[in-house]
Design a protein around this nucleic acid. Structure first.
Length: 683
RNA sequence: GCGCCCGUAGCUCAGUUGGAUAGAGCGUCUGGCUACGAACCAGAAGGCCGGGGGUUCGAGUCCCUCCGGGCGCGCCA
């Protein structure tokens, strides 16, 4: 049997492979095929090497793919674009899936797809994600990272939902992903709550231990943390209590350390429970306490000194500190900037520890954690936690990634840049290039929402688009409170529609609806948009929302349920075989223009999920998939109103409509699953 | 002062590496439930894409500049 280290070493690969698209034969695959063919053709016939951009024409009458490449070609070859396009259209080799080429406008080259073939292949396409090889390059996604000293709020939810959705997208496209949720269990924020229990509430450890068994310990600490902030403000000398606590916690001794461990671990469990409500799961919880105990920083520090990436400042404002010089070395006139990694009192800054952690993620630090089982998610998946000793022998191999995504809000981009600069200064430029700050803007409150919550606003704040929240002041919307409100609202809607269904089922559906409303709300904004949280928008189930998308799936399912019942009653066979039969020629007839354009547009959209996913992964923008899901749901709802399937007299036409519905339903279910949304059977 | 981000319909936001007539939701107004569930659909009104220059066949998108707003820039995390 191999040792853990040897097993890990065996899975190391020098380079990651290109991102793959799952085994669908849909739009994205066709587009790639067309691009490659055109680029090869241009090279061979005209001797030019250009990137061929492919877009969608404004109307289906103009085809499904268009390229303006002839405009660029015109300049290179000094020939007018339109005749060039005509020449290309007549000379291009045939491409499977493409029926014909035309020239449009001043020189657009447009492709028309083989509609029936596309429909057939989309309907047959594999929707399950391919599972990556166990030795495939690994991507680490770090997200959530909530300080374990208070309840999670909506800002944390945006982080977790973005991270979790990106993980789903990566796994769907065949990547091996490890999800880490970093726990800063020895930091200032935990120390503050320790001070609160010891010096403000003057509670003995046993009392806190008792409190920690209560269900909403994280809510209790939320309030206590705000009170501690005030406690410090009343008498600044009390900051010394924090410093004492921090020191004891870092060194791991005394009542403070015992309390810190109790508080942090209890609250981490609260956070896991909150995130589980949203379907978010993790692989590993790396903790700062182990980074300290196992002296990761010492190892990183040795490397930094050895490579000359840090220097000891003997004079100036940083005298006595170890600093990392920043700025352009080729620009000697630039002001010498430096980031302090080791303070003059010998303690390490946050950035320093983060550099060590980032090095470990890439397997560049000559040490590793021990690991223990911490928790089992409802799916059965195990969450591991780091340990400094006595790890469990069957722990998986963590770390050693080929690429790392850190999901952290954009206010921390300066520090993230320093971490990357650290890697670069050590000579790990490839790993620096593969360190991605997956940044997103904060969640603030709309002024109306802040006032609803009872926070006093100044005249100036009232006029703003949004106001920031502060965990330190105890302002903000707690994740569990919001989820409770969403579930109650969804439950009221479900109860009104299905009063006779079992209560347990109604609760399950209300939960699914609440989750979809929340996740969609947090995902529909692109990452660099500040979300001005508002209850009216977040609690809405109409328009561009998660429940709207779910509703389209529920409608499709209802059709199939009722159709199956009809078949059972009327069919002489009644053997349970509910095959829909349709020949390719029949499908082609229903899809043919102009009457078939309406159906074809729906087929094309349903078959474009892979393109939406590809774009989302490439741009690192989960919102693209949210937009896609909504568009598909919208297109289906329109179709649903125009064509009544169950009363369709023409059996062939009904078969076609059913197949189309099936295709849309399947694609929409996959799209929603990627967003972490499940459609209930009824709603 | 320096760095990053934003400015698109009344409001909230989309707009792939520059491509054809700038889109959606909400709100407003109008119409549609004895048809697969109206958490829905259809229609209308609503835009000098912050201003001004530039790059080119073509700019909401790229460059410069100005205006307005946000967030960072600590021997905190």
């Amino acid at each position: 049997m191999l040792s853990a280290a040897a097993r890990c070493a065996a899975t190391q690969r020098p380079r990651p492979r290109e991102a793959r698209v799952p085994g669908s034969r849909m739009y994205q695959v066709l587009e790639n095929r067309v691009r490659e063919t055109l680029e090869r053709f241009l090279r061979e016939r005209y001797g030019v090497s250009v990137h061929v951009a492919i877009s969608r024409p404004p109307k289906t009458e103009l085809g499904e793919m268009a390229t303006p490449v002839c405009f660029e070609l015109a300049r290179l070859l000094r020939r007018p674009p339109r005749p060039l396009a005509e020449e290309m259209a007549s000379l291009l080799p045939s491409i499977p899936g493409i029926e014909r080429w035309t020239v449009a406008g001043g020189g657009y080259l447009n492709a028309y797809l083989d509609r029936a073939a596309f429909f057939r292949e989309a309907a047959l396409a594999e929707t399950a994600a391919p599972s990556p090889a166990p030795d495939a390059p690994k991507i680490i996604v770090e997200h959530t990272n909530i300080n374990p000293n208070k309840a999670a709020h909506i800002g944390h939810l945006r982080n977790a939902v973005l991270g979790d959705t990106f993980v789903r997208l990566l796994r769907h496209t065949g990547h091996r992903v490890e999800v880490q949720n970093y726990i800063d269990n020895t930091g200032v924020q935990v120390a503050d709550v320790v001070v609160g229990f010891l010096h403000l509430e003057k509670k003995p450890v046993e009392d806190v231990r008792q409190l920690a068994t209560q269900p909403k310990f994280d809510f209790y600490c939320w309030d206590l943390y705000a009170r501690v902030t005030q406690f410090f403000e009343e008498d600044p000398a009390r900051i010394e209590l924090r410093n004492q606590a921090l020191k004891a916690i870092e060194e791991g001794h005394g009542t403070e350390a015992e309390l810190a461990e109790l508080i942090a671990t209890t609250i981490v469990r609260c956070h896991l429970r909150t995130m589980e409500r949203l379907g978010v799961e993790y692989d590993l919880l790396p903790r700062e306490s182990e980074i300290l105990r196992l002296k990761f920083w010492d190892a990183a520090f040795a490397l930094l000194k050895q490579r000359g990436a840090v220097v000891y400042a003997t004079s100036g404002k940083n005298a006595g500190c170890w600093v990392m010089p920043l700025g352009d070395a080729d620009e000697p006139t630039a002001a010498p900037e430096a980031k302090i990694l080791v303070r003059s009192n010998g303690t390490v800054t946050y950035v320093g520890k983060d550099i060590a952690y980032q090095l470990w993620k890439f397997g560049l630090l000559d040490r590793d954690f021990a690991y223990r089982r911490f928790h089992t998610h409802p799916s059965g998946h195990t969450v591991w936690v780091t340990a400094s000793e006595a790890g469990e022998p069957d722990a998986p191999c963590f770390g050693r990634a080929d690429q790392v995504f850190n999901v952290i809000d954009s206010r921390q981009s300066y520090l993230q840049n320093i971490v990357v600069a650290g890697l670069r200064a050590l000579g790990y430029s490839e790993q620096a290039d593969r360190s991605v700050h997956f940044a997103y803007e904060m969640v603030a409150l709309s002024p109306r929402c802040a006032e609803e919550l009872g926070y006093p606003l100044s005249e100036e704040e009232r006029r703003r688009a949004y106001v920031e929240v502060s965990g330190r002041r105890g302002t903000g919307v707690k994740a569990d409170d919001l989820l409770d409100r969403l579930e109650a609202r969804a439950r009221a809607e479900v109860d009104a529609r299905h009063p006779d269904d079992p209560a347990e089922e109604r609760a399950t559906r209300a939960h699914a609806i609440a989750v979809s409303a929340l996740r969609y709300y947090l995902l529909k904004y692109t990452r660099n948009t500040v979300v001005a949280f508002d209850f009216k928008d977040a609690l809405s189930f109409e328009g561009e929302t998660g429940p709207y998308c779910q509703y389209a799936v529920v409608r499709a399912r209802n059709i199939f349920r009722k159709w199956a019942m009809q078949q059972m009653e009327t069919s002489e066979a009644a053997d349970g075989s509910l095959e829909i039969s349709l020949t390719p020629e029949q499908a082609a007839r229903f899809l043919a223009p102009p009457e078939g354009n309406e159906f074809w547009e729906l087929v094309l959209l349903a078959g474009s999920l892979d393109a939406a996913v590809h774009a989302a992964v490439t741009a690192q923008e989960p919102a693209f998939v949210a937009k896609y899901a909504f568009q598909l749901a919208q297109a289906f709802n329109n179709f649903y109103h125009r064509h009544h399937i169950l009363t369709e007299a023409d059996a062939t036409r009904q078969a076609f409509l059913l197949m189309l519905t099936s295709l849309v339903m399947q694609q929409l279910e996959v799209a929603l699953a990627l967003l972490g949304i499940e459609a209930p059977e009824k709603m």
